[in-house]
Design a protein around this nucleic acid. Sequence first.
DNA 1: CATTAGAAG
DNA 2: CTTCAAATG
Lengths: 253, 253
Amino acid sequence: MRIYSWNVNGIRSVAKKDCLPWAILPGAEVICLQETKAQPQQIPDLTDPEGWHGAWHSAKKPGYSSVAILSRDKPDEVVPGLGHDDFDVEGRVLAARFGTLVVITAYFPNSQELGKRLDYKLAFCAHLEGYLAAWRAKGCQVVLLGDYNIAHRPIDLARPKENEKNAGYLPGERAWMDRYLGLGYRDVFRERNPELAGAYTWWTNWGGARQRNIGWRIDYATVSPDLVSRVQDAAIHPMVMGSDHCPVSIDLG
Amino acid sequence: MRIYSWNVNGIRSVAKKDCLPWAILPGAEVICLQETKAQPQQIPDLTDPEGWHGAWHSAKKPGYSSVAILSRDKPDEVVPGLGHDDFDVEGRVLAARFGTLVVITAYFPNSQELGKRLDYKLAFCAHLEGYLAAWRAKGCQVVLLGDYNIAHRPIDLARPKENEKNAGYLPGERAWMDRYLGLGYRDVFRERNPELAGAYTWWTNWGGARQRNIGWRIDYATVSPDLVSRVQDAAIHPMVMGSDHCPVSIDLG
DNA sequence: CATTAGAAG
DNA sequence: CTTCAAATG
Protein backbone atom coordinates (compact mmCIF):
# COMPACT_ATOMS: atom_id res chain seq x y z
CA MET A 1 0.00 0.00 0.00
CA ARG A 2 1.18 3.45 -0.93
CA ILE A 3 0.87 6.14 1.73
CA TYR A 4 1.45 9.78 0.86
CA SER A 5 2.01 12.79 3.05
CA TRP A 6 1.67 16.35 1.82
CA ASN A 7 1.65 19.73 3.50
CA VAL A 8 -0.79 21.41 1.13
CA ASN A 9 -0.55 24.93 2.58
CA GLY A 10 -4.32 25.35 2.44
CA ILE A 11 -6.60 22.68 1.04
CA ARG A 12 -8.78 25.40 -0.48
CA SER A 13 -5.74 26.81 -2.20
CA VAL A 14 -4.82 23.50 -3.86
CA ALA A 15 -8.49 22.96 -4.75
CA LYS A 16 -8.52 26.30 -6.58
CA LYS A 17 -5.41 25.22 -8.50
CA ASP A 18 -6.95 21.86 -9.44
CA CYS A 19 -4.31 20.06 -7.44
CA LEU A 20 -6.48 18.08 -5.05
CA PRO A 21 -4.30 15.35 -3.57
CA TRP A 22 -6.75 12.51 -4.19
CA ALA A 23 -7.00 13.58 -7.83
CA ILE A 24 -3.31 13.91 -8.58
CA LEU A 25 -1.30 11.51 -6.40
CA PRO A 26 -0.85 8.29 -8.38
CA GLY A 27 -1.59 5.01 -6.67
CA ALA A 28 -2.51 6.54 -3.34
CA GLU A 29 -4.27 4.32 -0.84
CA VAL A 30 -3.78 6.60 2.14
CA ILE A 31 -3.10 10.34 2.02
CA CYS A 32 -1.98 12.36 5.00
CA LEU A 33 -2.38 16.11 4.76
CA GLN A 34 -0.99 18.91 6.89
CA GLU A 35 -1.83 22.60 6.98
CA THR A 36 -5.22 22.07 5.45
CA LYS A 37 -6.08 25.41 7.09
CA ALA A 38 -9.77 24.70 7.34
CA GLN A 39 -12.37 23.32 9.67
CA PRO A 40 -14.55 20.60 8.10
CA GLN A 41 -17.65 22.83 8.14
CA GLN A 42 -15.80 25.34 5.98
CA ILE A 43 -15.14 22.77 3.27
CA PRO A 44 -18.18 20.44 3.04
CA ASP A 45 -17.36 19.59 -0.58
CA LEU A 46 -13.86 18.42 0.27
CA THR A 47 -14.27 16.39 3.44
CA ASP A 48 -15.44 13.14 1.86
CA PRO A 49 -14.29 12.81 -1.72
CA GLU A 50 -16.00 10.12 -3.78
CA GLY A 51 -14.25 6.80 -3.15
CA TRP A 52 -12.40 7.96 -0.03
CA HIS A 53 -12.88 7.99 3.69
CA GLY A 54 -11.95 11.30 5.22
CA ALA A 55 -10.83 11.99 8.76
CA TRP A 56 -10.15 15.60 9.72
CA HIS A 57 -8.69 17.19 12.80
CA SER A 58 -8.64 20.94 12.83
CA ALA A 59 -7.39 23.80 14.95
CA LYS A 60 -9.81 25.79 17.04
CA LYS A 61 -8.65 28.93 15.28
CA PRO A 62 -10.19 29.05 11.81
CA GLY A 63 -7.77 28.78 8.91
CA TYR A 64 -4.87 27.62 11.07
CA SER A 65 -2.81 24.43 10.93
CA SER A 66 -5.08 21.31 10.79
CA VAL A 67 -4.49 17.82 9.41
CA ALA A 68 -6.40 15.08 7.65
CA ILE A 69 -6.12 11.45 6.59
CA LEU A 70 -7.91 10.21 3.49
CA SER A 71 -8.00 6.50 2.85
CA ARG A 72 -9.55 4.18 0.32
CA ASP A 73 -10.31 1.68 3.07
CA LYS A 74 -12.28 2.75 6.08
CA PRO A 75 -9.98 2.84 9.11
CA ASP A 76 -10.78 0.52 11.97
CA GLU A 77 -10.24 3.45 14.29
CA VAL A 78 -9.57 7.17 14.00
CA VAL A 79 -7.99 9.10 16.85
CA PRO A 80 -7.69 12.88 16.71
CA GLY A 81 -5.06 14.65 18.76
CA LEU A 82 -2.23 13.74 21.05
CA GLY A 83 -4.42 13.70 24.14
CA HIS A 84 -3.02 17.00 25.41
CA ASP A 85 -5.03 20.17 25.04
CA ASP A 86 -2.05 22.49 24.58
CA PHE A 87 -1.37 20.80 21.28
CA ASP A 88 -4.74 19.45 20.31
CA VAL A 89 -6.35 22.90 20.00
CA GLU A 90 -3.95 23.44 17.11
CA GLY A 91 -5.04 20.38 15.15
CA ARG A 92 -1.61 18.83 14.65
CA VAL A 93 -1.93 15.07 15.08
CA LEU A 94 -4.31 12.46 13.69
CA ALA A 95 -4.15 8.66 13.65
CA ALA A 96 -5.96 6.10 11.50
CA ARG A 97 -5.59 2.47 12.41
CA PHE A 98 -5.91 -0.34 9.89
CA GLY A 99 -5.62 -3.63 11.78
CA THR A 100 -2.34 -3.36 13.68
CA LEU A 101 -0.90 -0.74 11.34
CA VAL A 102 -1.42 2.79 12.61
CA VAL A 103 -0.90 5.65 10.17
CA ILE A 104 -0.18 8.84 12.09
CA THR A 105 0.13 12.25 10.58
CA ALA A 106 1.72 15.16 12.40
CA TYR A 107 2.21 18.81 11.68
CA PHE A 108 5.04 19.73 14.04
CA PRO A 109 5.06 23.32 15.32
CA ASN A 110 7.29 25.84 13.62
CA SER A 111 9.87 27.02 16.17
CA GLN A 112 9.58 30.55 14.72
CA GLU A 113 11.86 33.56 14.44
CA LEU A 114 14.45 33.57 17.23
CA GLY A 115 13.12 30.23 18.42
CA LYS A 116 10.15 31.99 20.02
CA ARG A 117 8.23 28.76 19.98
CA LEU A 118 11.06 26.28 20.32
CA ASP A 119 9.98 25.24 23.81
CA TYR A 120 6.47 24.55 22.61
CA LYS A 121 7.81 22.52 19.74
CA LEU A 122 10.12 20.42 21.90
CA ALA A 123 7.28 19.82 24.35
CA PHE A 124 5.20 18.65 21.39
CA CYS A 125 8.02 16.32 20.37
CA ALA A 126 8.30 14.94 23.90
CA HIS A 127 4.58 14.20 24.10
CA LEU A 128 4.68 12.66 20.65
CA GLU A 129 7.29 10.17 21.81
CA GLY A 130 5.02 8.95 24.58
CA TYR A 131 2.06 8.90 22.24
CA LEU A 132 3.85 6.72 19.71
CA ALA A 133 5.05 4.43 22.46
CA ALA A 134 1.46 3.97 23.60
CA TRP A 135 0.42 2.79 20.15
CA ARG A 136 3.33 0.39 20.09
CA ALA A 137 2.50 -0.88 23.54
CA LYS A 138 -0.91 -1.81 22.15
CA GLY A 139 0.82 -4.00 19.60
CA CYS A 140 0.65 -1.59 16.67
CA GLN A 141 3.21 -0.91 13.98
CA VAL A 142 3.64 2.82 13.54
CA VAL A 143 4.26 4.98 10.49
CA LEU A 144 4.58 8.70 11.23
CA LEU A 145 4.18 10.92 8.21
CA GLY A 146 4.12 14.65 8.11
CA ASP A 147 5.81 17.98 8.24
CA TYR A 148 8.33 17.62 11.05
CA ASN A 149 9.53 21.19 10.43
CA ILE A 150 13.06 19.97 11.05
CA ALA A 151 15.92 19.46 8.65
CA HIS A 152 17.94 16.76 10.34
CA ARG A 153 21.43 17.03 8.90
CA PRO A 154 23.46 19.30 6.62
CA ILE A 155 22.56 17.13 3.65
CA ASP A 156 18.90 17.85 4.31
CA LEU A 157 19.02 21.50 3.32
CA ALA A 158 20.74 23.54 0.64
CA ARG A 159 22.25 26.15 2.95
CA PRO A 160 23.08 24.46 6.26
CA LYS A 161 25.68 26.99 7.42
CA GLU A 162 23.44 30.00 6.80
CA ASN A 163 20.53 28.44 8.63
CA GLU A 164 22.07 27.32 11.86
CA LYS A 165 20.12 29.97 13.74
CA ASN A 166 16.92 29.60 11.79
CA ALA A 167 13.71 27.83 12.67
CA GLY A 168 13.77 24.26 11.43
CA TYR A 169 17.51 23.79 11.77
CA LEU A 170 18.17 24.84 15.35
CA PRO A 171 20.45 22.58 17.38
CA GLY A 172 17.60 21.66 19.73
CA GLU A 173 15.40 20.53 16.86
CA ARG A 174 18.15 18.56 15.20
CA ALA A 175 19.00 16.95 18.53
CA TRP A 176 15.41 15.80 18.88
CA MET A 177 15.63 14.13 15.46
CA ASP A 178 18.76 12.32 16.67
CA ARG A 179 16.94 11.29 19.81
CA TYR A 180 13.87 10.15 17.91
CA LEU A 181 15.84 7.99 15.50
CA GLY A 182 17.82 6.77 18.48
CA LEU A 183 14.56 5.32 19.82
CA GLY A 184 14.57 3.04 16.80
CA TYR A 185 12.29 4.88 14.39
CA ARG A 186 13.67 4.78 10.88
CA ASP A 187 14.08 7.51 8.29
CA VAL A 188 13.91 5.00 5.48
CA PHE A 189 14.29 7.54 2.69
CA ARG A 190 17.64 8.72 4.03
CA GLU A 191 18.78 5.19 4.89
CA ARG A 192 18.26 4.18 1.31
CA ASN A 193 19.72 7.38 -0.15
CA PRO A 194 22.49 8.16 2.36
CA GLU A 195 24.45 10.48 0.07
CA LEU A 196 21.65 11.94 -2.02
CA ALA A 197 21.92 15.72 -1.91
CA GLY A 198 19.26 18.06 -3.22
CA ALA A 199 16.39 15.87 -2.02
CA TYR A 200 14.10 18.49 -0.52
CA THR A 201 10.44 18.71 0.34
CA TRP A 202 10.01 22.44 0.98
CA TRP A 203 11.18 25.62 -0.71
CA THR A 204 10.50 29.20 0.28
CA ASN A 205 8.28 31.09 -2.11
CA TRP A 206 10.83 33.87 -2.47
CA GLY A 207 13.21 34.40 -5.34
CA GLY A 208 12.65 31.26 -7.37
CA ALA A 209 14.04 29.02 -4.62
CA ARG A 210 12.19 25.96 -5.88
CA GLN A 211 13.28 26.54 -9.47
CA ARG A 212 16.85 26.67 -8.21
CA ASN A 213 16.23 23.83 -5.74
CA ILE A 214 17.27 25.84 -2.71
CA GLY A 215 15.19 23.79 -0.32
CA TRP A 216 14.85 21.80 2.86
CA ARG A 217 13.88 18.22 3.62
CA ILE A 218 11.47 18.70 6.51
CA ASP A 219 8.72 16.24 5.56
CA TYR A 220 9.31 12.63 6.47
CA ALA A 221 7.74 9.21 6.61
CA THR A 222 9.40 7.31 9.46
CA VAL A 223 8.48 3.85 10.67
CA SER A 224 8.79 1.80 13.82
CA PRO A 225 11.54 -0.84 13.63
CA ASP A 226 9.06 -3.68 13.18
CA LEU A 227 7.89 -2.12 9.93
CA VAL A 228 11.18 -1.67 8.12
CA SER A 229 11.08 -5.06 6.44
CA ARG A 230 7.74 -4.18 4.87
CA VAL A 231 8.98 -0.94 3.25
CA GLN A 232 9.20 -1.41 -0.49
CA ASP A 233 9.89 2.21 -1.37
CA ALA A 234 10.31 5.61 0.24
CA ALA A 235 10.19 8.60 -2.08
CA ILE A 236 9.78 12.33 -2.41
CA HIS A 237 7.85 13.89 -5.29
CA PRO A 238 9.34 17.29 -6.05
CA MET A 239 7.53 17.69 -9.37
CA VAL A 240 4.12 17.73 -7.73
CA MET A 241 3.11 21.37 -7.58
CA GLY A 242 0.36 23.23 -5.74
CA SER A 243 2.02 23.96 -2.40
CA ASP A 244 5.35 25.22 -1.14
CA HIS A 245 5.92 21.63 0.06
CA CYS A 246 6.00 18.55 -2.14
CA PRO A 247 4.52 15.19 -1.17
CA VAL A 248 6.50 12.29 0.23
CA SER A 249 5.43 8.66 0.12
CA ILE A 250 6.17 5.26 1.51
CA ASP A 251 5.13 1.90 0.07
CA LEU A 252 4.43 -0.94 2.45
CA GLY A 253 4.27 -4.53 1.27
CA MET B 1 -11.65 72.77 -16.88
CA ARG B 2 -12.78 69.20 -16.39
CA ILE B 3 -12.81 67.90 -12.83
CA TYR B 4 -13.32 64.21 -12.13
CA SER B 5 -14.18 62.39 -8.95
CA TRP B 6 -13.72 58.67 -8.52
CA ASN B 7 -13.97 56.31 -5.58
CA VAL B 8 -11.28 53.89 -6.71
CA ASN B 9 -11.72 51.30 -3.95
CA GLY B 10 -7.96 51.00 -3.48
CA ILE B 11 -5.51 52.93 -5.63
CA ARG B 12 -3.19 49.92 -5.61
CA SER B 13 -6.01 47.79 -6.88
CA VAL B 14 -6.70 50.04 -9.89
CA ALA B 15 -2.96 50.31 -10.51
CA LYS B 16 -2.76 46.52 -10.73
CA LYS B 17 -5.61 46.55 -13.25
CA ASP B 18 -3.93 49.26 -15.36
CA CYS B 19 -6.77 51.63 -14.60
CA LEU B 20 -4.86 54.51 -13.06
CA PRO B 21 -7.16 57.53 -13.12
CA TRP B 22 -4.63 59.94 -14.62
CA ALA B 23 -3.95 57.45 -17.40
CA ILE B 24 -7.55 56.68 -18.35
CA LEU B 25 -9.76 59.70 -17.62
CA PRO B 26 -9.94 61.77 -20.82
CA GLY B 27 -9.35 65.49 -20.61
CA ALA B 28 -8.87 65.53 -16.85
CA GLU B 29 -7.39 68.67 -15.35
CA VAL B 30 -8.24 67.85 -11.76
CA ILE B 31 -8.94 64.38 -10.35
CA CYS B 32 -10.43 63.77 -6.94
CA LEU B 33 -10.04 60.28 -5.53
CA GLN B 34 -11.72 58.59 -2.59
CA GLU B 35 -10.93 55.32 -0.86
CA THR B 36 -7.37 55.29 -2.07
CA LYS B 37 -6.75 53.00 0.92
CA ALA B 38 -3.10 53.87 1.25
CA GLN B 39 -0.78 56.20 3.05
CA PRO B 40 1.59 58.11 0.75
CA GLN B 41 4.63 56.24 2.05
CA GLN B 42 3.04 52.96 0.96
CA ILE B 43 2.74 54.13 -2.63
CA PRO B 44 5.78 56.27 -3.48
CA ASP B 45 5.40 55.48 -7.20
CA LEU B 46 1.84 56.75 -7.31
CA THR B 47 1.90 59.94 -5.27
CA ASP B 48 3.31 62.27 -7.93
CA PRO B 49 2.58 60.99 -11.42
CA GLU B 50 4.57 62.65 -14.22
CA GLY B 51 2.79 65.82 -15.26
CA TRP B 52 0.57 66.03 -12.17
CA HIS B 53 0.60 67.61 -8.76
CA GLY B 54 -0.54 65.20 -6.09
CA ALA B 55 -2.09 66.04 -2.73
CA TRP B 56 -2.93 63.15 -0.40
CA HIS B 57 -4.75 62.94 2.87
CA SER B 58 -4.83 59.56 4.47
CA ALA B 59 -6.36 57.83 7.44
CA LYS B 60 -4.23 57.01 10.44
CA LYS B 61 -5.22 53.36 10.06
CA PRO B 62 -3.28 51.82 7.17
CA GLY B 63 -5.33 50.76 4.18
CA TYR B 64 -8.45 52.61 5.30
CA SER B 65 -10.43 55.37 3.61
CA SER B 66 -8.13 58.22 2.39
CA VAL B 67 -8.52 60.77 -0.38
CA ALA B 68 -6.38 62.60 -2.92
CA ILE B 69 -6.50 65.41 -5.44
CA LEU B 70 -4.34 65.30 -8.54
CA SER B 71 -4.12 68.40 -10.68
CA ARG B 72 -2.26 69.48 -13.77
CA ASP B 73 -1.81 72.95 -12.26
CA LYS B 74 -0.21 73.33 -8.88
CA PRO B 75 -2.86 74.43 -6.38
CA ASP B 76 -2.38 77.78 -4.71
CA GLU B 77 -3.23 76.09 -1.44
CA VAL B 78 -3.89 72.57 -0.20
CA VAL B 79 -5.83 71.96 3.00
CA PRO B 80 -6.15 68.46 4.43
CA GLY B 81 -9.02 67.63 6.74
CA LEU B 82 -12.10 69.30 8.10
CA GLY B 83 -10.29 70.73 11.11
CA HIS B 84 -11.88 68.23 13.48
CA ASP B 85 -9.86 65.28 14.72
CA ASP B 86 -12.80 62.88 14.98
CA PHE B 87 -13.07 62.98 11.20
CA ASP B 88 -9.57 63.92 10.13
CA VAL B 89 -7.99 60.73 11.50
CA GLU B 90 -10.03 58.92 8.87
CA GLY B 91 -8.68 60.91 5.91
CA ARG B 92 -12.01 61.97 4.43
CA VAL B 93 -11.69 65.57 3.26
CA LEU B 94 -9.14 67.43 1.17
CA ALA B 95 -9.25 70.84 -0.50
CA ALA B 96 -7.17 72.33 -3.30
CA ARG B 97 -7.59 76.00 -4.07
CA PHE B 98 -6.95 77.49 -7.48
CA GLY B 99 -7.43 81.24 -7.20
CA THR B 100 -10.90 81.67 -5.76
CA LEU B 101 -12.10 78.26 -6.90
CA VAL B 102 -11.77 75.62 -4.23
CA VAL B 103 -12.03 71.98 -5.25
CA ILE B 104 -13.02 69.88 -2.27
CA THR B 105 -13.18 66.13 -2.20
CA ALA B 106 -15.01 64.21 0.48
CA TYR B 107 -15.48 60.59 1.32
CA PHE B 108 -18.56 60.63 3.53
CA PRO B 109 -18.77 57.92 6.20
CA ASN B 110 -20.85 54.84 5.49
CA SER B 111 -23.71 54.76 7.99
CA GLN B 112 -23.29 50.95 8.23
CA GLU B 113 -25.57 48.04 8.99
CA LEU B 114 -28.47 49.12 11.23
CA GLY B 115 -27.25 52.69 11.01
CA LYS B 116 -24.50 51.86 13.52
CA ARG B 117 -22.54 54.85 12.33
CA LEU B 118 -25.37 57.14 11.29
CA ASP B 119 -24.68 59.60 14.10
CA TYR B 120 -21.05 59.83 13.13
CA LYS B 121 -22.03 60.41 9.53
CA LEU B 122 -24.53 63.13 10.33
CA ALA B 123 -22.01 64.82 12.58
CA PHE B 124 -19.59 64.71 9.67
CA CYS B 125 -22.23 66.28 7.44
CA ALA B 126 -22.91 69.01 9.99
CA HIS B 127 -19.22 69.89 10.28
CA LEU B 128 -18.90 69.84 6.52
CA GLU B 129 -21.59 72.50 6.20
CA GLY B 130 -19.65 74.85 8.42
CA TYR B 131 -16.44 73.99 6.65
CA LEU B 132 -17.90 74.85 3.25
CA ALA B 133 -19.40 78.05 4.63
CA ALA B 134 -15.97 79.07 5.85
CA TRP B 135 -14.51 78.75 2.35
CA ARG B 136 -17.37 80.76 0.95
CA ALA B 137 -16.93 83.42 3.62
CA LYS B 138 -13.37 83.81 2.36
CA GLY B 139 -14.75 84.62 -1.06
CA CYS B 140 -14.26 81.22 -2.65
CA GLN B 141 -16.49 79.36 -5.07
CA VAL B 142 -16.90 75.79 -3.93
CA VAL B 143 -17.19 72.52 -5.84
CA LEU B 144 -17.63 69.46 -3.62
CA LEU B 145 -16.90 66.18 -5.36
CA GLY B 146 -16.88 62.76 -3.87
CA ASP B 147 -18.62 59.73 -2.51
CA TYR B 148 -21.45 61.16 -0.42
CA ASN B 149 -22.61 57.62 0.41
CA ILE B 150 -26.19 58.85 0.05
CA ALA B 151 -28.73 58.18 -2.66
CA HIS B 152 -30.90 61.26 -2.48
CA ARG B 153 -34.21 60.28 -4.06
CA PRO B 154 -35.98 57.18 -5.37
CA ILE B 155 -34.71 57.92 -8.87
CA ASP B 156 -31.15 57.69 -7.56
CA LEU B 157 -31.19 53.95 -6.92
CA ALA B 158 -32.62 50.91 -8.65
CA ARG B 159 -34.43 49.48 -5.61
CA PRO B 160 -35.63 52.36 -3.45
CA LYS B 161 -38.38 50.47 -1.64
CA GLU B 162 -36.13 47.58 -0.68
CA ASN B 163 -33.42 49.87 0.62
CA GLU B 164 -35.32 52.21 2.89
CA LYS B 165 -33.64 50.67 5.92
CA ASN B 166 -30.22 50.29 4.36
CA ALA B 167 -27.12 52.39 4.76
CA GLY B 168 -26.99 55.08 2.12
CA TYR B 169 -30.73 55.52 1.83
CA LEU B 170 -31.82 56.06 5.40
CA PRO B 171 -34.30 58.87 6.02
CA GLY B 172 -31.74 60.79 8.06
CA GLU B 173 -29.22 60.70 5.25
CA ARG B 174 -31.73 61.68 2.60
CA ALA B 175 -32.93 64.51 4.83
CA TRP B 176 -29.41 65.84 5.05
CA MET B 177 -29.19 65.92 1.25
CA ASP B 178 -32.42 67.95 1.23
CA ARG B 179 -30.98 70.26 3.80
CA TYR B 180 -27.67 70.61 1.97
CA LEU B 181 -29.32 71.47 -1.34
CA GLY B 182 -31.63 73.76 0.60
CA LEU B 183 -28.53 75.75 1.54
CA GLY B 184 -28.16 76.54 -2.12
CA TYR B 185 -25.63 73.94 -3.27
CA ARG B 186 -26.58 72.50 -6.61
CA ASP B 187 -26.71 68.93 -7.83
CA VAL B 188 -26.18 70.01 -11.40
CA PHE B 189 -26.25 66.52 -12.86
CA ARG B 190 -29.76 65.89 -11.55
CA GLU B 191 -30.95 69.41 -12.39
CA ARG B 192 -29.99 68.83 -15.99
CA ASN B 193 -31.33 65.27 -16.09
CA PRO B 194 -34.37 65.49 -13.83
CA GLU B 195 -36.08 62.36 -15.10
CA LEU B 196 -33.05 60.27 -16.05
CA ALA B 197 -33.40 56.87 -14.37
CA GLY B 198 -30.63 54.29 -14.26
CA ALA B 199 -27.90 56.89 -13.80
CA TYR B 200 -25.83 55.26 -11.10
CA THR B 201 -22.29 55.57 -9.83
CA TRP B 202 -21.99 52.48 -7.63
CA TRP B 203 -23.00 48.84 -7.92
CA THR B 204 -22.49 46.05 -5.43
CA ASN B 205 -20.02 43.41 -6.53
CA TRP B 206 -22.55 40.63 -5.97
CA GLY B 207 -24.57 38.85 -8.57
CA GLY B 208 -23.77 40.85 -11.67
CA ALA B 209 -25.44 43.99 -10.31
CA ARG B 210 -23.40 46.29 -12.52
CA GLN B 211 -24.09 44.22 -15.63
CA ARG B 212 -27.78 44.49 -14.83
CA ASN B 213 -27.41 48.14 -13.74
CA ILE B 214 -28.83 47.56 -10.29
CA GLY B 215 -27.01 50.51 -8.79
CA TRP B 216 -27.03 53.66 -6.75
CA ARG B 217 -26.08 57.26 -7.48
CA ILE B 218 -24.04 58.14 -4.41
CA ASP B 219 -21.17 60.07 -6.00
CA TYR B 220 -21.83 63.70 -6.76
CA ALA B 221 -20.25 66.93 -7.92
CA THR B 222 -22.20 69.76 -6.34
CA VAL B 223 -21.38 73.44 -6.62
CA SER B 224 -22.05 76.61 -4.69
CA PRO B 225 -24.72 78.82 -6.29
CA ASP B 226 -22.19 81.30 -7.62
CA LEU B 227 -20.64 78.56 -9.74
CA VAL B 228 -23.73 77.28 -11.55
CA SER B 229 -23.35 79.64 -14.48
CA ARG B 230 -19.85 78.29 -15.15
CA VAL B 231 -20.95 74.64 -15.36
CA GLN B 232 -20.73 73.47 -18.94
CA ASP B 233 -21.34 69.81 -18.28
CA ALA B 234 -22.00 67.37 -15.45
CA ALA B 235 -21.64 63.70 -16.24
CA ILE B 236 -21.23 60.21 -14.93
CA HIS B 237 -19.00 57.65 -16.64
CA PRO B 238 -20.44 54.20 -16.04
CA MET B 239 -18.26 52.50 -18.66
CA VAL B 240 -15.06 53.29 -16.80
CA MET B 241 -14.14 50.09 -14.98
CA GLY B 242 -11.62 49.29 -12.26
CA SER B 243 -13.69 49.97 -9.13
CA ASP B 244 -17.16 49.24 -7.84
CA HIS B 245 -17.80 52.96 -8.34
CA CYS B 246 -17.60 54.83 -11.63
CA PRO B 247 -16.21 58.34 -12.03
CA VAL B 248 -18.30 61.48 -12.20
CA SER B 249 -17.17 64.76 -13.73
CA ILE B 250 -18.02 68.40 -13.99
CA ASP B 251 -16.78 70.86 -16.61
CA LEU B 252 -16.33 74.48 -15.60
CA GLY B 253 -15.95 77.21 -18.17
C1' DC C 1 -18.04 40.11 -3.54
C1' DA C 2 -13.60 42.96 -3.12
C1' DT C 3 -9.83 45.40 -0.91
C1' DT C 4 -6.37 45.75 2.58
C1' DA C 5 -3.60 44.35 6.79
C1' DG C 6 -2.03 41.11 9.92
C1' DA C 7 -0.69 36.64 11.66
C1' DA C 8 1.69 32.76 10.42
C1' DG C 9 4.68 30.00 7.85
C1' DC D 1 6.11 35.31 -1.22
C1' DT D 2 1.72 32.86 0.23
C1' DT D 3 -2.27 31.43 2.85
C1' DC D 4 -6.28 32.62 5.56
C1' DA D 5 -9.21 35.80 8.55
C1' DA D 6 -11.10 40.00 9.98
C1' DA D 7 -12.63 44.56 9.14
C1' DT D 8 -14.83 47.48 6.07
C1' DG D 9 -17.46 48.74 2.45
